[in-house]
Design a binder for these strands. Structure first.
Lengths: 218, 218
DNA sequence: ATATATTTTTAGACTAATCTAAAAATATAT
DNA sequence: ATATATTTTTAGATTAGTCTAAAAATATAT
């Protein structure tokens, strides 16, 4: 079907389209892929020939219908494998990404659908991100950033925006786990840091932290 | 570490060394890999530079200690994934090979050791082949070909020599499954076909079939 | 032992994915 | 509006893995 590299580009374009709904630029994709703009241009040409992206020179690009379907399928695989690693193989949520990056490229419809069944059709991956079903449909959960809550408001911790190892380990260290109830006790107007209450304890976190935590409000 | 291609060559050399213990030839490996002799020469040079094989021009090659270790590790991964596919994901023994060929190249020590534990340290894959442990040690089972048994002798079906889809499906169709007790009722001297008894039924199989079935005798 | 056949290697080319450096297009600023 | 800066594309190279065709080495046969 498609090469690992093509799939990785499609996935990256998918994520960038959330940030830039009008279209993705060569430089933005180069940064996301940690590669050079010239390499991106080469690859975009190839993806365009294969009808995976819509592209006009110098005008940016967007996923085609086929490109979108393919990207979502790779994301489904990535997230299902993450669930497998955490639930069955004792991985922690900060260890799964690297391995899932490899596993997401394994080609087998049966494999992924059976894995889905084996895991009992999970709706979220270990970081709270929704898992597309076999038709590519997501459950969109309405969530807000913790940094957007006002003093006195509360909700459930349902996901992270940044899932870097360091951030995830930071959360682990403070016992901030998915599903925890978090309430804003205080909000410092000067630096936007917040005093939060969770698990019967109070904790002060910076705006950088609260801006990476997704909350489902009641 | 090593590329998919390098790992595939190492695995193929490993298997060929069983057949040709003195050393593997370029042509033999080309046939095994379904590629051209010139491609094999190119790759062998690379493997030789990386100290994975011992090679002298025109004189064939053998795996080095490092090459052997690497090949065994790939085989361990392949066979563990096969067990996973059959035991957890409802694959049949004739469906697993193609997917395991992909999964065997995933790089993660933790992944494979946790998978091993998750599967409860299986000693054999779905075709009866032994699974190396995390040190690379195999359990060698003393087995003989069904075609080597004499009239009246019997044993347990413990493995297949040829694990092609067609052969495995042939066995399925006749309910010849791993673990079955098989007894030679009759042996036809002319074509070496045998009348076997298993599961309370008698069945005639050709020499080609009996030459691909491994038996553990009591 | 020498001619012939077979095997193996080399030489040169191709594709995919990447890079650097330069050119072309577009955007920005005064 | 035109010069300058930025972005994007192109041109040309590089690496891994493969191929074909030819050359070199080895094996076989009479």
């Amino acid at each position: 079907m498609f090469t690992f590299s093509e799939e990785n580009y499609l996935k990256a374009i998918y994520h960038l389209e959330r940030k830039f709904p009008v279209g993705v630029s060569t430089n933005a994709l180069a940064e996301e892929m940690e590669t050079k703009a010239s390499s991106v241009t080469d690859m975009i040409k190839k993806l365009s020939e294969k009808k995976l992206v819509n592209y006009k020179k110098y005008q940016g690009f967007k996923l085609s219908k086929l490109g979108m379907k393919t990207a979502v399928s790779v994301i489904r695989k990535h997230r299902l494998w993450e669930v497998f690693l955490v639930e069955k193989l004792h991985f922690s949520w900060d260890e799964v990404h690297e391995v899932a990056e490899q596993l997401e490229h394994i080609k087998s419809e049966k494999l992924i659908d059976e894995l889905d069944r084996f895991l009992d059709f999970p709706k979220r991956d270990p970081h709270g991100d929704p898992i597309p079903d076999d038709e590519g449909n997501f459950i969109i959960l309405n969530k807000v950033l913790l940094s957007d809550l006002k003093k006195g408001e509360s909700g459930i911790f349902v996901g992270v925006k940044d899932s870097s190892t360091t951030f995830l380990q930071f959360l682990d260290k403070r016992n901030i786990a998915l599903g925890s109830e978090i309430k804003i006790s205080e909000k410092e107007p000067f630096d936007q840091s917040v005093l939060i209450k969770l698990n019967e304890q109070e904790l002060r976190v910076s705006n950088l932290i609260s801006g990476n935590i997704y909350i489902k409000t009641n």
